[in-house]
Amino acid sequence: MKVAPTVVFLFRDSEGFASAISDALRPNPSSSLRRLEDSFELSLDGYGIKDHNASGSIFHFVDAEGIYKVSLVVMQHYEPPVLACAVNEVLGKIAGDNSSLISTLYVPIILGSSQLIRESKSLKSEERKALVYGLQVGQETQIAEALRSRTEKPPPSLRIQHETSACILHLVRVLRLPTFFLIGQTGQHSHNKSTEEFEIFHTLGEILASATGLHYSKDNVTWNPTKISRDSKEPWRALYG
């Protein structure tokens, strides 16, 4: 599975977050980049899974010389235990197919307050705005260092209780893939949840654009974040620690 040195890694979800992000990231008007769409389907037979494949879409941003600059990998949604197998297979392909030049992953996610567990404390005044945590995993990169000024460092006590996110976090550590998680936290302003979620979404989009050299277009955002609660129970979450 061919990807660029810079990869934005997403999962399709019922609220359309992944689709909204992938639609909003476009080539800069002044650049020569063009956007190509591809798909992938990887067998999971090696895991003993016969009725599912690891599949999804890839949006490549390619320059005038045909060089892949940025790839947006959008996987289909899976439930555990297929989830871990599908993610492992795709991440393994990303790591294995780029042995000479390891790709850097950016993983944007938005989680509810009950899915980000930390020690209880009073929020400082500067934390009362839409909050995006930045979590670096693996090899340090210059871009990741620059992103720290635009994100909040997670407290040591922070725990992610969300199946997909915890699975990706565990596997990129195992595969030693340099990865930067952008974690937006909702639930800080319960009186205006919709506005808060869109503020976090736009912040994530702008940070991704700065990290990838793409353009974030608010005009292309179509997102309905209020269909379901992010605070639902997930019985398999203990599997990943």
Rank of each mutant, 00 (worst) to 15 (best):
79 E>W: 08
116 L>S: 04
25 L>S: 10
36 L>N: 04
128 R>S: 02
222 T>G: 02
14 S>E: 09
153 K>V: 14
209 A>E: 08
187 G>M: 03
46 G>V: 07
175 L>P: 02
17 F>A: 07
212 T>M: 07
185 Q>S: 04
209 A>D: 15
68 Y>P: 05
163 E>M: 09
203 T>R: 11
104 T>W: 15
139 Q>I: 06
6 T>W: 09
202 H>S: 04
103 S>E: 08
62 V>K: 00
208 L>E: 00
58 I>Y: 01
131 L>H: 13
23 D>H: 14
193 K>G: 08
197 E>Y: 01
122 S>Y: 08
104 T>H: 08
125 S>M: 13
64 A>V: 00
128 R>K: 12
11 F>T: 06
119 E>K: 12
55 S>W: 07
76 Q>W: 00
186 T>F: 01
5 P>R: 12
115 Q>I: 04
181 F>C: 07
180 F>I: 07
36 L>P: 00
188 Q>V: 08
97 D>Y: 03
241 G>C: 11
71 S>V: 01
220 N>M: 15
2 K>I: 03
238 A>P: 06
5 P>C: 03
135 L>D: 04
129 K>D: 13
183 I>D: 02
11 F>S: 10
233 K>I: 15
1 M>T: 03
139 Q>E: 06
220 N>Q: 10
229 S>L: 11
120 S>K: 13
130 A>T: 12
42 L>K: 08
192 N>C: 03
26 R>E: 14
114 S>A: 04
74 V>G: 08
83 L>G: 13
49 I>Q: 05
154 P>F: 15
149 S>I: 11
4 A>C: 00
69 K>D: 03
92 G>Y: 02
